[in-house]
Structures are given as C-alpha cells and as structure tokens.
Amino acid sequence: MNIFRLTADMTHLMSVIVLLLKIHTIKSCAGISLKTQELYAIVFTCRYLDIFTDFISFYNTIMKVIFLWTSFSIVWYMRYHKIVRRSYDKDQDTFRHVFLMLPCLVLALLINERFTFKEVMWTFSFYLEAVAILPQLVLLQRTRNIDNLTGQYIFLLGAYRALYILNWIYRYVTEPNYVHWIPWMSGLVQTLLYGDFFYYYFLSWKNNVKLQLPA
C-alpha cells in the first residue's frame, strides 16, 4: 500500500461521508443524482463479488463492506426515506441507466482479461464506473444552485480517481509485472470526465464565488 493509494481510498471514503452528512444532517439530497448512486451500487456489487471467496487483507474486506453498505444505503435514503426523498429532483435527473449499462456490458464481454463470470463482472464494473458520474454531471449542469456539500462531494470523487492514477504510476514503476490495462484505461476516461468540473470548481474557489457550471 503506497501513499497515493491510501490517500485515494481515504478521499473516496470522505466523499461518501460528505454525501451521508448532507443526507443525515440536512435531510436533503438536492442536486444529487439517484441514477449515479444506483450505478455506483451496481458497480460495487459487480466488482466485489470476490468478497467471500478471495481474502486479500482485513483492510480490503472492511473497505469493500463500507463501500457496498454506504452505496446501498444512499440509494435507500434517496428512494424511500420520507423526508430525504422529497428533496430529490426527479424531473431533472432523467439520464437512462440502460444507455450506460448496455454498452459497458457489451464491452466487458468483448474486452476482458479472462472470459469467466466473475472476471466479466469485474471488468464491467470498471467500464461502468468510468461513466457512472455522467448523470450526476448532467444534473449538476441543470441545477443552477450547487450547494457546498454537493460541490465537495463531486470534487472528492474526482480527486479519488486522480489519486488512483498516481498510485498506478507508482506501482508500475516499483512493482515487477504490475500491468492492468482495464482499470488504467477506464480510470483515465473517468478522470478526464471530471476535467471540466475541476476547472469550474477551482475557478469558483479562486474567485471565492459560488460554484456554477455554464449552461
């Protein structure tokens, strides 16, 4: 475990905490895309199929449980919590899951490291994670007022992905035989999708004004 990887995981954890904080304390999920949250729940379910079969480390198992548990509870809150669900902007969050999931599934069936169920699901989870943020970014652009917690949540998610790239570079240089094209390529695409958001996030931070994306 190198510093980039640890910081990446902690940033990911912080993003989830920020989102849960918003849901728990403000009882609001305004500006958060349920579609993206549902896609994340699918991503982690498909990726962590090995949770019961392959033990890697205590840290690894705990983090998997946390990401699975939190992704499903966020979806539950947004769908069923009687106060939280009222703040969900259903009419603005119109992205269709199937348009993202189907191409990712086809791609996972075609391009994978091994043609087994677990392996294809694992590959699918990476392709899907790469594009899972799109409904959230679309919603963000439609929302005129982006509150601080939503902005921070997306910033932390993007930072987590960027740190994973540093982790991969570090591991490639320091570990023999460390090559993993599927996470690398999908991770790169995923991080690039945040580029635009980062630009406006830093601009608003530098000028000390409220974050707003151009229409």
């Binding site: 990887r5 995981d9 990911h12 090995d50 392959d54 890697i56 480390s57 690894n60 983090m63 998997k64 990401f67 490291e113 091994r114 392996e119 694992w122 994973y164 982790n167 035989n177 460390y178 993993h180 996470p183």
Partner: peptide, 10 residues
C-alpha cells in the same frame, strides 16, 4: 494467480 495477485485494489 498472476491476475488474482493484482486484484488488491478497490
């Protein structure tokens, strides 16, 4: 084994 060894990331 080679593939498995690398699946230690989240």
């Amino acid at each position: 084994e080679f593939l498995h060894q690398q699946k230690d990331e989240l």
